[in-house]
Design a protein around this nucleic acid. Structure first.
Lengths: 190, 190
DNA sequence: ACGTAAAACTAACGATTGTTAGTTAATTAT
DNA sequence: ATAATTAACTAACAATCGTTAGTTTTACGT
């Protein structure tokens, strides 16, 4: 028996890594058990089901995002500062848990019982994000292109950070926040 | 029996849709057969394996991208025009086959025998894209931020178009090309 | 009208899936 | 030291997986 009081955390972390590599459906409980170094049946001393593993991984992050954007919306700052805060939040949360972010992005459709709650959180997040963009356009700070395209474009990049951040061994978070905000807000042309 | 000479095309198209909804591993041959309106065993009158379905879906698109970017690199235009051409290529190919694009993005890791060839095509594509960016930076047209961040940011948005384009029933392709190029190249701040 | 080929069907295969039952070993509390 | 609890194990389950074999039905060229 491994001497540790949080085998469960190890299982969730390992599962997130495997989910990122092959997707939820392609990862078997035996794959997961092998990666942890125990037998598949032993996993059930720590978790109730494969479903629950996915659920815990996803909602640990999803709720952070929903709470975070509420704080950003409440800030008394201009749209540009709020957008930079959103970029910073994505970078921070992704750096904390990149493989969980992968599951959040790619495996949410397998949530089954808790799918509805996930969609609620996601819609709430996007609604707040949209508010920031629309306010920024009304105040003349942001360009008057379709706010849908604008939202899609920025969010696509932010949601893909889980692919990029783990490749950077020596991540300088503050520099990444500055550089990525610059690119997303001001563009890439000199 | 359904009166059609290209059941195979229907199978591939339906498979791409299902792969987008649930991912390759979660789609069973019985799911696919149901969606087509036949029995699972009958699928094998038209295709050799589940693997082959994925492979045909992905490479039909992947090869288009690789060929397309070679043409763009060969253009005698500046970096900004080349980047806009890349945006246009992504929008065109994604609009032609959004569900295939989803498989290309999300299910490539299940290619097994043909995984190596896929990675070769993808690396070739990214290498050409990088050339465009580096040339643009050297000539002073593009900002001197990390070209890796720049590449990641633009490519993330373009690779996510498969999520956005099918939601637009009345897609005005030329307008989308203009708007998205504007946002990616010039940013969102007024 | 009839023969041939294409494409559907039913039935089943061996392998693998998530999970449970029952048991043994290891850790912790008294 | 011993009892109680935790966490590992082996073995097996019913269900489902991709796929094959063999058969029947449909469509088409002559």
């Amino acid at each position: 028996m491994k001497q540790t009081k949080d085998r469960k955390a190890e299982i969730l972390q390992t599962a997130a890594l495997l989910f990122k590599q092959k997707g939820y459906s392609a990862v078997t409980m035996r794959d997961l058990a092998d990666a942890v170094g125990i037998k598949a049946a032993s996993l059930y001393n720590h978790i109730n089901s494969k479903q629950q593993i996915l659920s815990e991984i996803i909602f640990a992050i999803a709720e952070d995002f929903t709470e975070g954007i509420e704080e950003i919306v409440a800030q008394e700052t201009n749209a540009q500062a709020k957008l930079k805060a959103v970029v910073a939040q994505h970078i921070t949360l992704t750096a904390d848990n990149p493989y969980g972010m992968a599951a959040l992005n790619n495996d949410w459709m397998h949530l089954e019982d808790r799918l509805e709650y996930y969609l609620k959180l996601r819609n709430q997040y996007e609604k707040r994000f949209r508010e920031i963009v629309l306010n920024g356009q009304q105040s003349g700070q942001l360009k008057n292109v379709s706010h849908e395209i604008l939202l899609f474009s920025v969010l696509s990049t932010l949601r893909n950070l889980y692919l990029w951040i783990p490749r950077k061994a020596d991540l300088q978070k503050e520099k990444l926040i500055d550089d990525l905000s610059e690119i997303l807000l001001q563009g890439v042309v000199q």
